[in-house]
């Protein structure tokens, strides 16, 4: 990801900043202008817990070139206690121990690199809790 787009995403990617809709109270991650639930446009800041539960997961064996060195890796849809859902890799785990309901913590990781000389992109991955 080139610098400008990565830079814009820093609040959500590096700090898990989300927003809570002032009218319907749903937590939306990352922030957006119009609430997908009620079309509200007033927001309060919210921060996601660094914990969650796997909704559904897979083990990716055939990866894009940028992720080739990481394969096989677990990719999962994670729901946080605030009700927000994020798609994240699950790292530091046995590949087949992850499934619906697996409790996870979110840890700060390097997510991708733009080749050998481009910027390094950070964010969160999930790791099995406990």
């Amino acid at each position: 990801m080139p610098s400008p787009g990565y830079w814009r995403g820093i609040p959500s990617r590096l700090r898990l900043e989300a927003v809570r809709c002032s009218s319907c109270e749903n937590v939306v991650y990352p922030s957006r202008r119009i609430c997908p639930h009620c079309h509200g446009t007033k927001w309060e800041p919210a921060e996601l817990s660094r914990t969650g539960e796997v909704v559904t997961s897979t083990v990716v064996h055939v990866a894009p070139d940028d992720f080739a060195m990481e394969a096989p890796y677990v990719l999962a849809l994670i729901e946080t206690p605030e009700g927000a859902r994020l798609m994240l890799q699950v790292t530091d785990c046995e590949l087949n121990e992850i499934g619906p309901g697996t409790a996870v913590n979110l840890e700060f990781r390097r997510i991708r690199a733009e080749g050998n000389s481009g910027i390094l992109c950070y964010g969160f991955k999930a790791v099995p809790a406990g």
């Binding site: 890799q89 530091d92 840890e107 700060f108 990781r109 390097r110 950070y122």
Partner: peptide, 12 residues
């Protein structure tokens, strides 16, 4: 891990 470096260790 392949996704860890001085920055990620520092943050944690």
């Amino acid at each position: 891990g392949i996704d860890e470096d001085t920055i990620t260790i520092s943050v944690e």
